[in-house]
Amino acid sequence: MTSEQIYTQLTEIFRELFDDESIVLTPETTAADIAEWDSFNHINLIVASEARFGVKFTTAEVESMQNVGQFVDAIAAKSGNRSE
């Protein structure tokens, strides 16, 4: 899956979850940029992304994700060489 495809699908998840069609994601987007992106919705984002991309993040990975760019990289790494 290409990086653009991941951004497209991830944007859809963000827009659905935050009910905001104007959200545009960049690698630098962080929780500070989206008002409702609190710790509660962060979990929802992770769970929804895991379901959409068919991946499972480790506890350490979730802990280390600071911005959307890292989020996308983690998805790309997992969906690119899925061993499950």
Partner: peptide, 14 residues
Amino acid sequence: PALWHRSKQEIHPA
């Protein structure tokens, strides 16, 4: 278990 440690959610959001 990962969600339990992360957010103390016993019932999975999904």
